[in-house]
């Protein structure tokens, strides 16, 4: 993490669909609800969203279909032109970029993975992966070298000459991932990359993805409608409904302190013990002694200790340093599911 400035900074972003959205937005009274906008003949794809993506962070945007998550991510890359607000990428307002500069930005900084892969059917695996490099005008030899490297990275060695149609869904998405990585982007957008895959493969691909991320450390915006997936991967989760972000926070805080009724309903069925970590349970003014627990341990990880231990408070450490203490009772009630 080289700097604290966010990679993507979105301020009051609006994306309306309809006849003349810009004019409508200018005249619209503030605080208009999604339904009120719809009654006027417009669809609020993104409704007044302000959100930052920190460098090296994995932000997961989640919501049901039609909640605007795909639209939002397409605004980040300017696949959609936004109706109102600003989006800055590395401090640059992308709404003001000229066509040429936008193309440059995409050629050098951004990669995107799509739900149904978006592979070019007439190109082989290798040609698909090399496609962004080709667009950039790199020579054939360099292109091939780099493409081979990425293909190896995603574990598709030996299939370079296959056509997309000859691959399974999971393999096709590996091609999609490889293609998005070919230009070594700083920002990586993934639009429900594993939703089209069956559950077993999905799990495998998530592990693969975590492995890649541990290696590459990109800034990531990841879209999913699957809460378990979000919890598995996210540094932070943004929950969207009707185009607006309901809550954006770390997984355990979302589970422990849902900001709205909608988020509470969403998190209701989640096994909190798997999500909440010791670090999130620290309470001010508490101190304890004895064997500490690691801040990253989930309540589930500590279950045996929590039940057999007799201490009221348990100290918490992060990277060897004491950072506070948690109440054993708090942790136990999460474990048994009574709030």
């Amino acid at each position: 993490m080289t700097s604290d400035a966010p990679v993507i900074a979105a301020r009051n972003v609006w994306k309306l669909f309809g006849a003349d959205p810009k004019k409508y937005l200018r005249k619209m009274p503030s605080g208009h609800s999604y339904d009120a906008i719809q009654a006027d003949g417009y669809i609020a794809g993104v409704k007044d969203v302000s959100i930052d993506v920190a460098r090296g962070e994995m932000l997961v945007i989640m919501g049901l279909s039609g909640s605007g998550k795909s639209t939002l991510v397409r605004c980040f890359s300017r696949l959609h032109d936004i109706t109102g607000g600003t989006i800055e990428v590395d401090g640059q307002d992308i709404g003001k970029l000229r066509e040429r500069d936008l193309i440059d930005l995409r050629r050098n900084k951004m990669g995107m993975v799509f739900q149904s892969f978006g592979l070019l059917p007439h190109r082989t695996v290798l040609e698909n992966v090399a496609f962004p490099l080709e667009m950039r005008g790199q020579d054939k030899h360099t292109r091939r070298e780099r493409a081979l490297e990425v293909v190896r990275l995603v574990g598709l060695e030996g299939r370079e000459d296959y056509f997309p149609r000859e691959l399974s869904g999971g393999q096709q998405q590996r091609v999609g991932i490889a293609r998005s990585l070919a230009i070594e982007p700083d920002i990586w957008f993934l639009d429900e990359p594993f939703s089209a895959l069956d559950p077993l493969i999905r799990r495998e691909m998530q592990d693969e993805f975590l492995r890649l991320q541990a290696m590459l450390g990109k800034s990531i915006v990841f879209i999913t409608h699957d809460f378990d997936e979000a919890l598995r991967l996210a540094d932070r989760i943004a929950i969207m409904k009707d185009g607006a972000v309901e809550q954006c926070d770390t997984p355990d805080r979302i589970v422990l302190n849902p900001a709205t009724e909608y988020v509470r309903k969403f998190t209701e069925d989640i096994d909190k013990a798997r999500v909440v970590r010791a670090g999130g349970l620290i309470r001010d003014g508490l101190a304890g002694d004895g064997t500490p627990v690691e801040a990253t341990a989930t309540v589930r990880d500590m279950a045996r200790m929590l039940v057999s231990d007799t201490r009221e408070t348990i100290p918490v450490t992060r990277d060897g340093a004491m950072i506070g203490a948690l109440s054993r009772n708090d942790a136990l009630s999460i474990l048994v599911g009574t709030d």
């Binding site: 397409r74 890359s77 696949l79 193309i103 440059d104 995409r106 050629r107 050098n108 951004m110 990669g111 995107m112 799509f114 739900q115 149904s116 892969f117 978006g118 592979l119 070019l120 059917p121 007439h122 190109r123 496609f131 962004p132 080709e134 667009m135 950039r136 999609g176 293609r179 998005s180 230009i183 957008f189």
Partner: peptide
């Protein structure tokens, strides 16, 4: 498919590259 087009755009295609390398082959 809009995703294929978006993939082309995200690969940094210019308008002509998009037509020549994405649209026409995909409409084969």
């Amino acid at each position: 498919s809009p995703e294929v087009v978006e993939a082309g755009k995200m690969s940094g295609c210019t308008k002509f590259q998009l037509l020549r390398n994405v649209y026409l082959p995909a409409a084969r």
